[in-house]
Design a protein around this nucleic acid. Structure first.
Lengths: 338, 338
DNA sequence: ATGAAAGCGCTAACAT
DNA sequence: ATGTTAGCGCTTTCAT
């Protein structure tokens, strides 16, 4: 069995209280005693038991990380990266991240993540859109709650968000600067704040450039912004509109789908149509042509979320605190001058 | 604060021992008492504290999951999927998975994963190749240890492996059946058991078909089987050999790299050269042409690993137990009849 | 500067 | 069938 505090105390001929104080670097201990105890700790390869600490401190040193299985299973790693950022940061602070997925159609009767029920987390990070009912249920447990890449607009939770409006502006400006005027926007569910804001950025950029907003160029009825829906959105759009020369897709998956539609139908990218995506997932580079996009620093999102959680746990006033993570235009080969 | 066993006992007017027995469904308790206690438990939304349980039971209900950061950061989700399989299965058994990455060049001076030191896991799953020194150090803690997709040949650890030999045979046979005779193999470090076994499958298939083994068609000097090395391997190979009509890459990443090299140099796939990969990562479908490959059921690998861990924890005799997960040929468009 | 002791929320052995 | 109690390995208050 592993050594306990008792073993150390016995061998160092001090009380367990002294050992505890040494571990916590309390300055009430004399240098000699400290040295002696430290030596024994090393000899026995003693490490305090987390279970015992958790019990007595009424904390767990764990943070729960919740996302829907849809999001986790996404082909292009996105939330996985956010999770990694959180995990990296947590490790430095001595915390563990307990990851769990919930069904995208989580409903009243589904069980809550276990770590909430058995109190094995000190706080919960929710990444991406999750059903409202889940949030409501979690809220009852009064655990610190932080959102990443999603938040309900009427709530006061601290949140880490992508600067989607800025990203929308960046993407649209890039197209405008390349001489495009007939610029389409394709996106999924417009109720989703990220997509809504990307569209807002698009609108604002057009407005700033004095380009008239054309509702026919906007397609946002797809439920989920994946490749198939990108394909379908492009199909609908190009069937009705002949003058579109550029497409801003709300994410890379839809951009990829749109690119496929165009290829299948005799358009060449970027000669006939320029396409820009959003997210910067790694497959972008593999495409032919490689996709111009807006880079989202995914790892940073996770890192920031964890830091914010630490602030909350230290009782700082973080009510409604919002961290906007900046994005970056990555110009590759799917866009060109008109 | 959350309700404790004491609160339940008080309200139900029984002792905490009775409550404990009810929780554990012990049949020594009378149906009426049981009913009464259960009712109070529901009223108070009582869930036993994991910290307390862990401490008294000297178990943690956690399993550590270790992989190198290289592996976790792989562009094509592979180990992420294995992890998911483990997590899904763990959830059903009431376990948590603590994920941590270690540096690929982990050395003597680097710290051990914390969950080993502070005893917050009951066992450890190691996924993919990790430095030998890390395994040695972990072994000292006498924690149950299981390997997935990697194992040292001289060790007695239980392990879940891909049936790489069978996969190598499947891939090579597919090419042979399509009339190919001059079949190249490209792979990374041949010391890696997976790569070695895929090559063994290749050799065996050639042998069975009575095709002479040509060492010049085998390139296995790349350190890490990624795209760049696939590109380079193809370059080396095609510079020296004119008669190659098919390439079996040890994984999809190298296959993708090789495909790029061929495209860049005027070969067309599959008209001039057929290519088959291994793994079946999702981007394969996006390629032009979509990649023929050997499908590895990643989620299953994780699931099996967790189940094996449960067996070990139940003290079943699992010493040296080896689970071989079967693979499957997925024919797409990168291979064709000669 | 150090030690004794209570107690965190459970489980399990033992008692009734 | 149910209750009493010791103890898991720590932290922390209070003594000394």
């Amino acid at each position: 069995m592993a050594a306990t505090i008792k073993d150390v105390a016995l061998k160092a001929k001090v009380s367990i209280a002294t050992v505890s104080l040494v571990i916590h670097n309390n300055n009430r201990i004399s240098p000699e005693t400290k040295k002696k105890v430290l030596k024994v700790i090393k000899q026995l390869d003693y490490h305090p038991s987390k279970s015992a600490r958790d019990l007595v401190s009424q904390k767990t040193g764990n943070i729960g990380f919740i996302l829907t299985d849809d999001h986790f299973l996404r082909t292009e790693p996105f939330y996985t990266r956010i999770f990694l950022g959180t995990e990296f940061e947590a490790r430095d602070s001595g915390f563990y991240i307990l990851l769990t997925t919930v069904a995208s159609d989580y409903s009243e009767n589904d069980p809550l993540p276990r770590f909430i029920l058995d109190r094995s987390v000190d706080g919960v990070i929710i990444a991406g859109k999750v059903p409202h009912i889940l949030i409501d249920r979690i809220a009852k447990y009064k655990l610190p709650l932080i959102f990443v890449d999603y938040v309900l607009d009427n709530e006061e939770y601290p949140v880490v968000l992508i600067d989607n409006i800025q990203g929308g502006i960046l993407a649209t400006n890039h197209l405008i600067e390349n001489g495009h005027k007939n610029i389409a926007f394709i996106g999924g569910d417009i109720q989703h704040p990220s997509i809504y804001n990307r569209l807002m950025g698009y609108s604002r950029a057009l407005e700033n450039a004095g380009i008239k907003h054309n509702d026919k160029y906007i397609h946002t009825t797809s439920p989920y912004p994946d490749r198939q829906n990108g394909y379908d959105a492009a199909k609908t759009l190009f069937k009705k509109n002949k003058y579109i020369t550029a497409v801003f897709a709300c994410n890379d998956a839809m951009a990829i789908g749109a690119m496929h539609f165009l290829k299948d139908n005799g358009y060449s990218v970027p000669q006939d149509v320029s396409i820009i995506g959003f997210d910067d997932v790694e497959v972008d580079l593999l495409l032919d042509p490689p996709l111009t996009t807006i880079r989202v620093p995914k790892i940073d999102l996770g890192t920031e979320a964890f830091r914010l959680m630490m602030e909350v746990l230290k009782n700082k006033n973080t009510n409604g605190k919002k961290i906007l993570v900046p994005v970056e235009l990555i110009i590759r080969k799917s866009t060109k001058k008109l």
